[in-house]
Computed example of a mutant assay.
Amino acid sequence: MDVVSSNLNSVEVLPVTADGVKTCWTWGKIKVANEKSLLTAKQVSDGTWRVFRKDYLEKIDGSIATTLPKSLWVEKEMNNDYGRRSLQELLGDSIVEFPKSPFLINKIVEVGMGKDGLVLDFFAGSGTTAHAVLDFNKQDGGNRKFILVQLPEPTDRTDYPTIADITKERVRRVIKKLNDEDGNGKSQDRGFRVFKLAESNFTPWDGSIDQSPEALSRQMEMHIEHVRQGRTDEDILYEILLKSGFPLSIPVETLQVDGKTVYSISDGIMLVCLDRNLSMPSVQAIVDRLPERVVFLDEGFAGNDALKVNAKEACKLKNIVFKVV
């Protein structure tokens, strides 16, 4: 027999609070009809009956259910005193006047993301966010990552001249502390990289200058050595990675190939050689590793056009993308 739902002979019943106030249901009729197996009724202490939703420790997707977070967090661990204490334990000095508590950020991370999330903190300060994420990963075996951004604001201190110096040192010490706690056991990957915003490592071609032969000649002379003075190979490498579409967190391994330093990106997908004195044997040794693409510094060919053409052809024979910067 089919049962047809209708309002005929229906009586509206509203939930009533302990002080007699009628409230409303959180589920509608359709949801109740579809998910009534999740509902149960229990008699409470005042003798009345109330409807409850069943909660299971393990969800359908296999994750563990948690209680809903409170709207107001007033636990003592959330206050700045705990933030100051945790910073003092690491650096021997509170340094920052009102540091956030790692417990507070830990709670936010717990509520807001899973085990593989990415946290972005645009006002890193003393590095509480990194501290909390690293601690939480240790607690539940997570693989959360963080990006911290902090301007080098001066502190008038000699040990930590800028706020950014405090941030970096705190992250280093948290990682050391957690690694020491792990001892000889298997530890998590807790590495981090520090980058500073700067202009390009390469002198750009200025298309707005006077197009006279003299002006063009001067600019061409400037581009004979187009890498800016004082830039390291690592500076150049990470600009190449960004312009090639790789994230800054990509695994990079340093290799020695035929006496040349070669950077292997993500297990050899791309090889980068910034050596200033290339030869065909060294180029061929790099090509024989069969990366998807290879990058050389133009300065490495020292104006030897024949060597550059041969290097390009060697890559072409093995379907490798050849790039010179």
Rank of each mutant, 00 (worst) to 15 (best):
D55E: 15
D298N: 09
L38Y: 05
G183Q: 09
V44L: 13
A314L: 12
V295H: 07
V325W: 14
L241E: 07
E169M: 01
M222Q: 14
D55A: 15
V133G: 05
V133D: 07
K115M: 14
V309W: 06
V294M: 04
A164S: 15
N106S: 08
K145C: 04
E313I: 13
P281Y: 05
L104S: 04
K316V: 01
F322K: 07
M113C: 08
V21M: 05
D189A: 05
N7D: 15
L91W: 04
P281W: 14
V44A: 10
M78R: 08
P281A: 04
K70T: 00
L90S: 09
V74G: 12
G114D: 11
F146R: 01
E181C: 00
I166S: 07
I250G: 00
A41M: 09
F202E: 13
G117S: 09
G185D: 09
R173M: 01
D210Y: 05
N7I: 14
P204H: 03
V4Q: 11
L216E: 10
G230K: 04
R293V: 01
N310I: 04
L104N: 00
S249E: 11
S86G: 06
L307R: 11
E313V: 14
T203I: 14
V283A: 10
K145H: 08
A132L: 02
L317K: 15
G141N: 09
T48Q: 06
G191R: 07
K323A: 14
E35L: 03
I286V: 13
R231N: 04
S217D: 14
A130M: 03
E299K: 07
A285R: 10
S63V: 11
I108R: 00
P251C: 06
S63M: 08
W27V: 09
E58P: 00
I240L: 11
V21G: 01
N304S: 11
V11H: 09
G303N: 09
Q43N: 07
K145I: 00
L120E: 02
L148Q: 02
R218T: 12
Q211K: 15
F192P: 00
K196C: 03
K243H: 13
V133S: 07
D46H: 08
D180H: 08
R231M: 12
D206F: 01
D81Q: 14
M220G: 09
W27I: 10
T162A: 11
K31I: 08
